[in-house]
Nucleic acid binder design. Structure first.
Length: 591
RNA sequence: GGAGUCGUAGUUCAGCUGGUUAGAACGCCGGCCUGUCACGUCGGAGGUCGCGGGUUCGAAUCCCGUCGGCUCCGCCA
C-alpha cells in the first residue's frame, strides 16, 4: 500500500543536513538510494537533489516505521519524519557530506514504488546507450546533477553579468527563412503556404544585426540554434549560444567586455584566470601550432625545417618543397623512449589527417642521433635538423612533409596526442586565447569560388579594403575566435555597416546584385537606413559548460542529448508522422 | 559519404586457433543478522550471445550483410 502526501511538507533537503541541525525534527522527501537491513535495525540512505543522508529505523524505538521500512526497495519515493542526531565519532562516514549526522525515523510514508532500475544510480557505470534510453534515471546521478546545476549557474551568471553591463536580452524567431551558405538547415514545412518552408536558425545572426540598426545597442540572447550536420563529441544538432552584439565598438571594446564574464564563469569552479587574455593572429597560430584553436597549456611548438632542406635532393622533401609545401616538426621532450610501435601509432594518426607518412629523429641520452631519415639525408643533415628542432638528449622530433594544410593538421593532431600521452596537460589550467585576423575568404577548389570564412557580413580590415577585388585571398577580416584549452568557444566579428562594402563582398563571393537582393534584400535595405558600426560574438554555451564541468562531451551537460546519428534514444525521435499530417503539409514521401 | 571500435544475464564484462549444460561480479528475489554505510552471510531465479543469411557434422566464436552505441575524417558561413 502506498501513502499519499497528505499534509506532509518537506522541511529540509537530505543533502543539506549537518551538525548544525542536530536536535531538529525534519521531514525529508527523496528516493531510496540503498537499504541495509539488520533485522531489528535498518539503515536507509535517502537521496535528493542535494545529496544523501542516512536514516535509521529502529524496531525498539519506532516499530511501525521499522516494519514499513522492510518494504522499501531501491528508488522508492519516501517521506521520512524524524530527528537529526549527531553520530558517535567512530560512526562518522567521511564519504558522505552529511556523514556526521543521521536521521532517526519516527514516521515513514512510502509515496511511490519503483521498478528495479536498469542500472544502479551512482553504481558501476552503465554504457551510454542505456543511460540515454533511461535519461531520467541517469540524471539522478550525482555527477549529472552537478553538471546540470552547473549549467544553470553558468546561465544565471551570464545573464546577470550582461544585464549589469546594460545588455538587453531579446528573443528572435525560431521559424525563419532559409539562408544560403553555411550549415545545412533544418526545414519546417508551411501548412498555410503550400510548398514553402521555414528554416530553423543556425544562429540569430541577421536578426541581431537588425537589432543594432534598430538602436538596441547592446543585445544578447541565450539562443537555441540548429544545424543539420554530422555530430561529434562537441557538436549536437541543436545547441545553445550566448549570442552578443554591440554598436559603436571596435574589436578591443568587445574583448574587454567579454573577458571579465569568462573570469566570473571560471570562478564558478574556483579557477582563477588572468586578464587580459593573450592574443594571437590566425597566421601565427597556424604556423606555431598548426591550428586556429591551439591548446596553449603545453608548448611543443611547430618548427619549420624548410630552410635547412632548401638544397636537399631527397625526392620526397624536394617534391614537397617545390610544390609550395612544407617540412615541419614538433619535438617530444623525452620522446627518445618511443618504441617502433609507439611511432607507428603516431604515424597512423598523422595519416588520418592526410600525411603520407611521418619521419622521426631521436637523440639518445648519450647524444647519439638516429632517424628514419638517416639513409635519405645523411647523418650530418639529420643532426642539423635535430638541432634546428631543439631535439636534445632524450628527445624525439616528429617530422611531417606535404601541403601546408596537411602538415598543419597532422602536427596539430600529433601535438595533442603526445600531450595526452605524456601527461603534459594541467587540468587546472584554463587558457583562454583570442585568435584574430582570420582570412576573409576561403577558396573552394571543387566549386571554383571563394566562400566567406566567417560569414558574408564580416568586415574586412580597413587596410585590406582595396584588395577585395584584386587579391581576395589576401584580405584579412575583423574576425576573431575565443579559444579555451584548444576548444573553439566562440566566434565573432566586426560587421559591415555600409551598403557599398556589403555589395562588394557579395560580389567577391560570386553573388550578383539580383541574387543578393533576393536572398538578403531586407538586410541590404536596412543598411540604407542608418546602420551604426557594430560587431559581436557568439559562444557555444554547451561547450563552455562542458569545459567547466571537465567533461569530454557536451552530451554530459545537456539534459536530453542526441546520439551520433541525431536520434533521441528515450523519445525515439525522429519518428514517422501520420498520412493526415503529411497531407495537410502538402508533402509526399518518395521511394 | 568514409574509417575504426564495440554489441553475450537487468548492468559491467570474460568466454583463445569452432567442440558437452555459455561463466564472473554487481544488481534482483527469499532466509538470517542491533551500528551498517559498496554491510555481511546462506540459498535462488535470471540468456533470441543485436538481427538476417552463409560455411560446417557442429557457430557466441569463422565469412557476408544489416541495425545500433561511441570516436574520428569529410561536413559544421
Amino acid at each position: 500500500m502506498l501513502d499519499t502526501l497528505g499534509t506532509l511538507k518537506r522541511t529540509r533537503y537530505c543533502g543539506e543536513l549537518k551538525p548544525d541541525h542536530a536536535g531538529e525534527q525534519v521531514t525529508l522527501m527523496g528516493w531510496v538510494h540503498r537499504r541495509r537491513d539488520f533485522g531489528p535495525l535498518t539503515f536507509v540512505d535517502l537521496r535528493d537533489r542535494e545529496g544523501i543522508v542516512q536514516v535509521v529505523f529502529d524496531e525498539d524505538k519506532n516499530p511501525d516505521a521499522h516494519r514499513r521500512a522492510k518494504d522499501l526497495r531501491g528508488e522508492f519515493v519516501a517521506a521520512v519524519v524524524g530527528k537529526v542526531v549527531m553520530r558517535e565519532k567512530e560512526k562518522y562516514n567521511p564519504n558522505l557530506k552529511t556523514g556526521r549526522v543521521e536521521v532517526v525515523a519516527k514516521e515513514l510514508y512510502i509515496l511511490n514504488d519503483a521498478k528495479t532500475p536498469p542500472f544502479e544510480i551512482d553504481g558501476a557505470r552503465a554504457s551510454e546507450d542505456v543511460r540515454l534510453k533511461y535519461r531520467y534515471l541517469d540524471l539522478r546521478r550525482e555527477k549529472m546533477q552537478y553538471n546540470i546545476i552547473l549549467r544553470h549557474r553558468s546561465l544565471i551568471t551570464v545573464r546577470r553579468y550582461l544585464d549589469e553591463h546594460s545588455f538587453c536580452e531579446i528573443e528572435t524567431p525560431q521559424l525563419i527563412r532559409t539562408t544560403p551558405e553555411g550549415a545545412r538547415d533544418y526545414i519546417v514545412p508551411s501548412r498555410i503556404s503550400p510548398g514553402n518552408f521555414y528554416a530553423l536558425p543556425q544562429s540569430p545572426q541577421i536578426f541581431k544585426q537588425l537589432l543594432m540598426v534598430a538602436g538596441y545597442d547592446k543585445y544578447f540572447q541565450m539562443a537555441h540554434c540548429f544545424r543539420d550536420e554530422d555530430l561529434r563529441a562537441d557538436r549536437q544538432p541543436e545547441f545553445t549560444q550566448i549570442d552578443i552584439e554591440m554598436s559603436f565598438i571596435r574589436q578591443d571594446d568587445l574583448f574587454k567586455t567579454i573577458e571579465p564574464m569568462m573570469v566570473e564563469l571560471a570562478r564558478l569552479i574556483e579557477v582563477k584566470v588572468d586578464l587580459p587574455f593573450p592574443r594571437i593572429t590566425y597566421s601565427e597560430a597556424m604556423s606555431r601550432y598548426g591550428s586556429d584553436k591551439p591548446d596553449t597549456r603545453y608548448a611543443m611548438e611547430i618548427v619549420d625545417l624548410g630552410a635547412h632542406l632548401a638544397d636537399t635532393d631527397f625526392a620526397l622533401y624536394r617534391n614537397a618543397l617545390d610544390a609550395r609545401g612544407q617540412v615541419k616538426a614538433i619535438t617530444v621532450k623525452g620522446g627518445a623512449k618511443y618504441s617502433r610501435k609507439n611511432l607507428d601509432e603516431l604515424t597512423e594518426i598523422a595519416k588520418r589527417f592526410g600525411a603520407g607518412g611521418m619521419a622521426w629523429i631521436k637523440v639518445s641520452d648519450a647524444g647519439d642521433v638516429s632517424s628514419s631519415l638517416a639513409k635519405a639525408l645523411g647523418e650530418e643533415k639529420v643532426t642539423q635538423l635535430a638541432s634546428a628542432a631543439a631535439c636534445e638528449a632524450g628527445d624525439c622530433a616528429l617530422v611531417i612533409a606535404g601541403k601546408p594544410s596537411v602538415v598543419a593538421a597532422s602536427l596539430n593532431a600529433l601535438r595533442s596526442e603526445v600531450a595526452e600521452r605524456e601527461g603534459l596537460i594541467d587540468p587546472n589550467k584554463f587558457n583562454f586565447l583570442w585568435v584574430t585576423d582570420f582570412p576573409m575568404f576561403e577558396y573552394h577548389e571543387e566549386d571554383g569560388r571563394y566562400y566567406a570564412m566567417h560569414h558574408p557580413f564580416t568586415s574586412p580590415r580597413d587596410e585590406d579594403m582595396d584588395k577585395i577585388e584584386t587579391d581576395p585571398g589576401a584580405v584579412l577580416a575583423k574576425a576573431y575566435d575565443l579559444v579555451l584549452n584548444g576548444v573553439e568557444l566562440g566566434s565573432g566579428s566586426i560587421r559591415i555597416h555600409q551598403r557599398e562594402t556589403q555589395r562588394r563582398i557579395f560580389k567577391a563571393l560570386g553573388l550578383s546584385d539580383e541574387e543578393a537582393r533576393s536572398k538578403f534584400g531586407f538586410l541590404l535595405d536596412a543598411l540604407e537606413y542608418g546602420t551604426p558600426p557594430h560587431g559581436g560574438i557568439a559562444f557555444g554555451f554547451d561547450r563552455l559548460v562542458m569545459l567547466l564541468a571537465r567533461e569530454k562531451s557536451i552530451r554530459e551537460v545537456i539534459a536530453f542529448p542526441k546520439t551520433a546519428s541525431a536520434a533521441d534514444l528515450m523519445t525515439e525521435a525522429p519518428g514517422s508522422v501520420s498520412e493526415d499530417q503529411l497531407r495537410e503539409l502538402h508533402i509526399r514521401i518518395v521511394e
